[in-house]
Write a protein that binds this DNA or RNA. Structure first.
Ligand SMILES: [Mn+2]
Ligand SMILES: [Mn+2]
Ligand SMILES: [Zn+2]
Ligand SMILES: [Zn+2]
Lengths: 168, 168
DNA sequence: CTCTAATTTGCAAGTCATGCTAACTAACAA
DNA sequence: TTGTTAGTTAGCATGACTTGCAAATTAGAG
């Protein structure tokens, strides 16, 4: 995503108003690598601008995504994540603390079309699951700070979908 | 997933009842490579057993998944998919007709841990997006038979998440 | 300052999935 | 066959996340 200043420029050009709500979000998203959800942005935004609507957060995030300033990342666990990093990259999800880290694609490109027999592959999505650096350290307390409000049933087992590799 | 007969055996051993609802689902899922949703299974099941509850479909699917007979596949577009194919494989999603096809992993393993710098990768999920064989043929009518009832807003742009590869 | 089109809000509604529980029944024993 | 009962089902409520909608508000132009 571009800087708040640059975005302001773009918005003006498109006759989109530079509302305080939007400016606030520009700031919160700029260089933000936490892969926030609409809800988490709402909480933070609410501190600086009490009364801001969650609806507006969704609205603005949607606009930014439409403008190609944000990536929508669905990791299959609850809410959508918003990523201002538009560079070609993948994600690593820590099953212990829930943190989401960027992963540079190094070997991913290799799996290209080769894998899809007969189909015209345009895009490939990859999500790594495991334990992050910190959670791997001896005493880490198993603090699952990420309490995805969504129930555990099917959700918890979705990980089964991606059972593979990493072992050979 | 095992055959209905084998599953019956397993269920008996676990003191789980062999209800007609379960038996019906065993049959509908056996060798089913359509990656159905709970809803689609419900529709089909309803024809053979009017009155069956969608809740029961979810319940049974959840049990089978717990027993390791089904894979839960979340392609990030609407409802969860259920896959009786427990083999290690990936999926290709046709953006035109919505069909989901199995893809054998040939080169995917190569991207292994290498990509995740510093993290302990346990599992990797990969989803290919593109156009299927049929939809690529000259005159195909652009029939988007799959009308995912979910609105288009953010949902439609999720594909942005996986923008990469396939071009080099 | 005035006007107007864009935006924000708040709430309803929609989708997918699970929680809960009364009614039901498969399975087993008598 | 009949009774018993633990396991199931069906239905409805609830929950999480997201979007639709329209009235109220406001940024930005003139
Ligand atoms: Mn990222
Ligand atoms: Mn499959
Ligand atoms: Zn962690
Ligand atoms: Zn197709």
């Amino acid at each position: 995503m571009r800087s708040p200043t640059e975005l302001a420029q773009v918005f003006r050009e498109k006759q989109l108003k530079l509302t305080p709500q939007r400016q606030l979000l520009f700031g919160l998203l700029h260089d933000n690598d936490s892969h926030p959800t609409a809800e988490s942005l709402f909480e933070i935004a609410s501190k600086q601008m009490p009364g801001i609507s969650l609806r507006t957060i969704y609205q603005t995030l949607g606009e930014l995504a439409d403008m190609g300033e944000l990536q929508l990342v669905d990791l299959g666990n609850g809410a959508m994540r918003f990523d201002p990093n538009m560079g070609e990259h993948q994600h690593f999800v820590c099953g212990s603390c829930g943190a989401i880290h960027d992963v540079d694609i190094t070997s991913a490109p290799k799996l290209r079309a080769g894998s899809a027999e007969g189909f015209a592959v345009e895009e490939i999505g990859v999500v790594f699951h495991g334990r992050c650096d910190r959670c791997n350290r001896p005493n880490h307390g198993e603090q699952v700070s990420q309490h995805s409000k969504r129930s555990p049933g099917i959700q918890a087992k979705k990980i089964r979908q991606v059972k593979q590799a990493s072992s050979n």
